[in-house]
Design a protein around this nucleic acid. Sequence first.
DNA 1: GAATGTGAATTTATTCACAGCA
DNA 2: TGCTGTGAATAAATTCACATTC
Lengths: 216, 216
Amino acid sequence: MRGVDKNDVPSVTVPRLALYLRKLRELRARGVERVSSKDLAEMIDLNAAQIRKDFSYFGEFGTRGVGYEVPVLVDEITRCLGLDHTWNVVIVGAGLLGTALARYRGFTEQGFRLVGMFDSSASVIGARFGTGEDSRVRSVHELDEFCRRERVDIAMITVPAGEAENTVRRLGAAGVKAILNFAPLKVHAPEGVLVRQVDLSSELMSLSFYLDKEQE
Amino acid sequence: MRGVDKNDVPSVTVPRLALYLRKLRELRARGVERVSSKDLAEMIDLNAAQIRKDFSYFGEFGTRGVGYEVPVLVDEITRCLGLDHTWNVVIVGAGLLGTALARYRGFTEQGFRLVGMFDSSASVIGARFGTGEDSRVRSVHELDEFCRRERVDIAMITVPAGEAENTVRRLGAAGVKAILNFAPLKVHAPEGVLVRQVDLSSELMSLSFYLDKEQE
DNA sequence: GAATGTGAATTTATTCACAGCA
DNA sequence: TGCTGTGAATAAATTCACATTC
């Protein structure tokens, strides 16, 4: 990003940019040409100043008195998020969840290219996960070498909890720079590797807390 | 909760309680009897005062100079999160993701009981999703009546984006009080219904942002 | 002595409110 | 006039630091 120090961007702004982007793409698809921060704020149930401030960390994308051009904003946010180039992604763990992720659309659409899928179980190794001839589940034994050779950027891991820590370590050693962990435990992030936790049971527990609250 | 006003609990504390609970259960399973906030903080990479403050919204669970009894803490947090009773859960959308969620363990373990699964496609209606004889995918036509009759508390929806909004409305009208939405769009929450978004592509986009940052 | 529980200090995030520009 | 962009004000969350208790 031209002259933007990303360390100055609040961490809560980043997921919101993703939210804006999705809504803006929807608007663009519907042929909407312009939008004001107020309009957008109403659509996604947020404060308008919040939206303007979030944009302001990256530049001035709008026109005073007018608003924002939807296609311009889509492009700008796409760039802000680093989605203007392709990221190589692998999935480790070809169980039900891994397979569901592999089929997830809105995936290649956003510049994420699923280049490999790995499992330790002989019963799934060799199974197809995509359309190409090389879209077959590989043995985890190949994981390290593959990640290095194919310059894998991001890994999503859906392995059992007991294997998660070890998998993360191997991925880190193989040069993978970011990991999305679906295993239900917080793994230790190797030096220089960004690890994010996606945690279903944690989400359910939060719901439970607020449900409980209502019943008081 | 005896005398605790849950509105005084910061919203960020809730997901952390879930995090503590998981680690504490792990410690209990390993036979660890006591833990200090400092120990726990190191294990999950957090500030120790943060942990103590989080607990303090609910009561005094520890002993000064000593620390916390692991089993006591597990029970207390379980109660704080409303996990000391059972919640009835349905899944709407029996695709790959829905099926993966249905098989997810650590589900019944935490007091969530999957009582029904729904889909609109004739090709999956009637398919088994669990062990019981009534664990079969039902038609979405039965959704409203089922949720009312079975007093469903929570729904997880994994339907296509285009059907999400309508599904949420129906669930709300049928008395479902909390929804975990896996469809890739922010749905409008009906009055009195708690909706939480689980968004894979948003997580990936965040990773992309920080990856991009490193390359500067 | 050791570790909790908590006010006070600090940092971070949100919202207000308005100057500046089309 | 209308809406952006942004300092200033407010609110929320985190961390410090220490009095308190075992």
